[in-house]
Design a protein around this nucleic acid. Sequence first.
DNA 1: CCTGCTTCCTGAAAGC
DNA 2: TGCTTTCAGGAAGCAG
Length: 274
Amino acid sequence: MPEMPEVETIRRTLTDKIEGRKITRVDIKLSRLIKWPTAPEFQAVLTDRTVEKLVRRGKYLLFYLDNSLVLVIHLRMTGRLYYATQGREYDKFTHILFFLDNGDALLYADTRTLGTLYLMPQAELWRIAGLASMGPEPLSEEFTLEYFAGMLEKRQAKIKPVLLNQKLVGGLGNIYVDEALAIAGIDPDRIASSINETEAKYLYQAINQVIADGISHGGTTFRDYRDGAGQSGSHQHHLHVYGRANQPCHRCGAIIARKEVGGRGTHYCPNCQK
DNA sequence: CCTGCTTCCTGAAAGC
DNA sequence: TGCTTTCAGGAAGCAG
């Protein structure tokens, strides 16, 4: 499941191949993935546009085009975006194909088809609610300890759903939230406002650390995630708790447990996380 | 406004 | 062996 480090890795692996390229043709095999405008309009307006800049915000990828247009893609659960050289075969999960002026193509594939694509003028981006309302993201200037600790103080929900709320912190998903809570030694069931100043500082540092590590390892590949060149990430080899239920904790040796928190499968060390 | 539940979607894995 | 059920989860939509 692509979270901020995975989407950032995709951005980095696509930038050099995509920026400056003109989209010469768009094939749409599953039009319901396109949320705005209609599929025929999407296809017509996108044809002959040049990609000027590839930007990431949270888990969104934004392709800034000429004519002040922006193509916005969110991969959700199983979306994949990858560069394919001319004539390369593609599987049945490839739903949108962007052909480029050098004969290659940018392909959007998605097994569970929950991903979303938009095309709109730059001035209309506020219409994408999830993008417009996104909170500060880890490693950014806006994501300060003061902001983070102050935000936790006001929340009566459990810490895990608070961290997953994109309006409060942009870019975190299930894997990195479980990891950050494990590093900070905080139980995912804790009420956010009960977290004290010291714990908030540890958690803040842990969030920045797991995101930075995730990016430096090229993302976490459990099953579906691949970068823009089709390569797997390696952060799955560095996880403390996620996907490690019934295995020993790296720190204390206790058995990693799994429970449901806020409707999400949650991995944690019952001994280290209080 | 805040919080939590439901929905979307389909391949893989577990259950029978 | 093969069919059926459950599970995975990001985020919008909605109820209370």
